[in-house]
Design a protein around this nucleic acid. Structure first.
Lengths: 117, 117
DNA sequence: CATTATACATACCAGCCCTATGTATTCACA
DNA sequence: TGTGAATACATAGGGCTGGTATGTATAATG
């Protein structure tokens, strides 16, 4: 994808937490949801999402329970914990600071140059 | 500092490029400038900035020349290259996508200690 | 009956911030 | 005169994390 690795890394946690704040969900659906709300710009792989969910679980930001889809496939449903909700708020604060700092530079005046120079 | 490691990582390159787009500068001054425009929220260390500058130089985004301060201390001045300017534009595009995606979620509705749906 | 979509898991690799450490000069101040 | 702080740059090593590749398994599709 056309988004740098470190930016993907930085946005992974807040995006997953934000999506789960809409209601409980599971790995595969989160991948689809990210693709949907980014209008196809962000395309996560499963090999990336599951480790993120495991990490969030270890950190106590989410809880998981095994369930089943209507068709019978097993699913691991995740939902935000209280700590996860607090973490989401903190993530938002951090992004505010950084984007606000970037806006203090000529950063926002640079338009993307389509190909070539 | 209170900003996560991965967010610091993701913002380092665009911030340095944006600062250099204001005019040539050097490591120590960049650290001070970041602290200034973030109003003290971002406090970079020298051990973090110099490797970033070296990486940007290897990537061809910046050029460096040795100079001296008025008082006589040696300084390495960095300035944006054409490729660096293009990279800055691309970084901006990436950040637009990610922040726009985050805004598509309840992310922006979370204030310090939310809940209440 | 084979391919695709769904659904989850993990080992390995590479990249990068962070900390710690080292060198060197200028300036304030006691 | 001397001592610490600020200025100024450099790099080695550790730890964390996403990306890739791979494996398992079931349901739907044609």
């Amino acid at each position: 994808m056309s988004i740098g690795k470190d930016l993907v890394a930085a946005s992974a946690t807040p995006l997953v937490l934000a999506i789960l704040s809409e209601g409980e969900s599971y790995g595969y659906a989160i991948i689809k949801r990210v693709e949907e709300i980014s209008e196809g710009e962000l395309q996560w792989t499963d090999g990336m999402v599951y480790p993120v969910l495991h990490r969030l679980e270890r950190a106590g930001y989410v809880e998981a329970t095994w369930g089943k889809s209507e068709s019978g496939r097993r699913r691991k449903y995740y939902r935000l914990t209280k700590r996860g909700t607090a973490e989401l708020a903190d993530q938002r604060r951090q992004w505010q600071i950084v984007t606000s700092t970037l806006r203090s530079t000529p950063f926002h005046r640079f338009q993307a140059i389509p190909q070539g120079v």
